[in-house]
Amino acid sequence: MSVDVDVTAEHIARQIASTIDPVFAMIDGWRDVLERELAGPYAGALTGEGEPTAEKLDPVVAALASGELEREGSLITGAGFVAAPGFLADAPWHLAWWLSGSNTFGPGSGLRRLTTVDDPDSEQFRDYTTLEWWRVPARTGTRHLTGPYVDYLCTDDYTVTITTPVRVGGDEMVGLVGTDLYVARLEQVLLPVIRESGHPCTLVNASGRIVASTDARRPTGALLRIEGLAEALTPLRDAASVTDAAWLPGGEAVVPCGDTSLALVLEA
Rank of each mutant, 00 (worst) to 15 (best):
47 T>D: 14
59 P>H: 08
50 G>S: 12
34 L>D: 05
57 L>H: 04
46 L>G: 00
44 G>D: 13
76 I>P: 01
68 E>T: 06
35 E>V: 04
62 A>S: 12
60 V>D: 13
58 D>F: 02
59 P>G: 14
44 G>E: 11
38 L>S: 00
71 R>I: 04
72 E>G: 05
73 G>Y: 14
42 Y>W: 14
76 I>W: 03
48 G>P: 08
62 A>Q: 10
67 G>P: 06
34 L>Y: 14
48 G>A: 11
61 V>P: 00
61 V>K: 03
66 S>H: 06
72 E>Q: 07
69 L>T: 15
76 I>R: 05
39 A>R: 05
44 G>A: 11
38 L>H: 08
79 A>S: 15
70 E>R: 03
65 A>V: 07
53 T>G: 06
40 G>N: 03
34 L>T: 08
79 A>N: 10
72 E>Y: 06
47 T>Q: 13
34 L>R: 00
35 E>Y: 08
54 A>R: 01
55 E>K: 09
76 I>F: 07
42 Y>D: 09
47 T>R: 15
57 L>R: 11
47 T>P: 02
78 G>Y: 03
78 G>W: 08
55 E>S: 08
35 E>C: 12
35 E>L: 01
44 G>V: 14
38 L>Q: 06
56 K>G: 14
34 L>I: 05
62 A>V: 10
66 S>M: 11
46 L>R: 04
70 E>P: 10
68 E>F: 06
71 R>P: 04
64 L>C: 05
36 R>C: 06
72 E>T: 15
66 S>C: 06
36 R>L: 05
56 K>H: 02
66 S>Q: 00
61 V>W: 01
68 E>H: 03
34 L>Q: 11
76 I>S: 02
41 P>C: 06
43 A>W: 09
59 P>C: 13
60 V>P: 02
54 A>K: 08
59 P>R: 03
53 T>K: 01
59 P>S: 03
51 E>L: 15
50 G>Q: 11
59 P>L: 07
37 E>G: 05
68 E>V: 13
78 G>T: 08
60 V>N: 04
38 L>V: 00
73 G>N: 11
65 A>W: 07
33 V>I: 08
80 G>I: 12
63 A>I: 12
68 E>Q: 12
46 L>M: 07
49 E>S: 14
66 S>F: 05
37 E>I: 04
78 G>E: 04
58 D>L: 06
78 G>K: 01
37 E>Q: 10
65 A>Q: 01
67 G>E: 11
44 G>H: 09
72 E>I: 07
42 Y>H: 09
72 E>M: 06
46 L>C: 13
80 G>L: 05
